[in-house]
Design a binder for these strands. Structure first.
Lengths: 144, 144
DNA sequence: ATTTCTGCAAAGAGTTTGCATCCTA
DNA sequence: TAGGATGCAAACTCTTTGCAGAAAT
């Protein structure tokens, strides 16, 4: 875990990005939490460590990480964006009751992309999929 | 086209919803445009017809149509929500250059849902997928 | 006559921006 | 020390809300 933070920071450094304590903290939090937090959750979680850090800094850095390809922005309906530092190919399963997002792997849906290209004339560069349902915890609570 | 507007309005009427001119216009626009407009696009498009209509009315009615199951809200990244009155099962192919959204049908991805259920313990109720790429028009412009 | 809907304006969330100051490299 | 990063506050966009007046049934 810590290693991948180091690795990511190295990558940034090489491309001329300065490693500030805030930057380090935000990236570490994202990589270690694996929780798909919102910008505000990141901000509040790091408040004890950085009482004077502003939300703008969180947004600035998230934007940079996204441009550097280290973080993905998830926008599913409702309200604020969530951020995901796991850039391996995977989908998200979202609990409609508690909002939890779990990762889920599935062999690529290339066939879908190909058919979309054929039907629409688009040149397809990727796709995004989310599954919705109720997580085990919420189902358990309901059954009691 | 017009028939489906009538049908939708009938459906609303039966469930005790009043058919106001604004409501009629918003729904017609959505059903006929097939363009996945934003709330503001709807608002501005209907301004000539309803110079005094407020944005709040557009949002109020969209919300009601969504609750009635006649309209889907699409939230893909960037900024404002888009609204889709086509409730048949289909996916969206989004041009990353001009923002155009095209519909695209594909046989259901039940296998994915089943595997997600097995892997995560969720009870899956549905999914959402979007494909990204470049539309024929934008590709054409680039090639020139 | 009721009850719902509209329009207005103001409030609210999330996000971005401008600028002076700070600090990493 | 020089240029990028931070922090602050204000601005901006999208969306929601409260309420008085208007309109549909």
């Amino acid at each position: 875990m810590t290693t991948s933070v180091q690795h990511a920071l190295e990558q940034l450094k090489v491309s001329g990005v300065r490693i500030t304590p805030q930057r380090h903290a935000i990236l570490s939090y994202l990589l270690e939490s694996m929780e798909h937090p919102t910008a505000d959750e990141i901000y509040r979680s790091l408040e004890p460590q950085f009482p004077s850090m502003s939300v703008a800094t969180v947004y600035n850095n998230l934007k940079m990480f996204i441009e550097a390809g280290m973080v993905h922005e998830l926008t599913y309906g409702d309200n604020s964006s969530r951020f995901d530092a796991n850039i391996t190919d995977h989908y998200h399963v979202i609990c409609q009751q508690c909002g939890k997002i779990e990762d889920f792997s599935y062999p690529s849906l290339e066939a879908v992309e190909q058919q979309a290209a054929r039907h629409t004339g688009f040149q397809i560069s990727g796709h995004r999929m989310e599954l919705y349902g109720t997580c085990a915890d919420c189902r358990g609570l309901n059954q009691q």
